[in-house]
């Protein structure tokens, strides 16, 4: 990476500014990892590859609701952005098949984050 100048910083900012893309984020702080985030992440990657789904899988830090880890945030265009809590392998598979694929939210898995 080149040494940043002020212009360079601004350019980089615009370049990486959030594009309107579908994403799945998995919480990868101590709390998430301890609850099994790695397995969930692996399953999600595998499923997305299998279905060739139009979604990017990312890692992120702890969003705050540690009791519901592993937490997975899903944002698909024209659907509400939601958090799935206590995600296991089966739920991860369903997230890709139903939420991302069939555009259907999953029952009995969504948590509210209470962030304004």
């Amino acid at each position: 990476m080149e040494k940043l100048t002020k212009d360079g910083l601004e350019k980089l900012r615009q370049q990486h500014a959030a594009a309107d893309k579908n994403y799945i984020k998995v919480g990868f702080s101590s709390c998430g990892i301890a609850a099994g985030a790695q397995e969930v992440y692996d399953v999600l990657c595998e499923e997305v590859r299998k279905h060739n789904a139009d979604v990017e899988i990312k890692k992120c830090g702890c969003v705050g609701m540690c009791s519901a880890e592993p937490l997975v945030e899903v944002r698909v265009k024209n659907m509400p952005r939601v958090f799935y809590g206590k995600v296991d392998k089966e739920t991860a598979i369903k997230i890709v098949e139903k939420h991302v694929g069939a555009k259907m939210l999953l029952n009995d898995r969504i948590y509210d984050m209470k962030v304004s």
Partner: peptide, 17 residues
Amino acid sequence: LRNCGVIDPESIEEYIA
């Protein structure tokens, strides 16, 4: 906590964004 759980903590680009 503005970026916690929002950006990838290992990416400086996402922080800059």
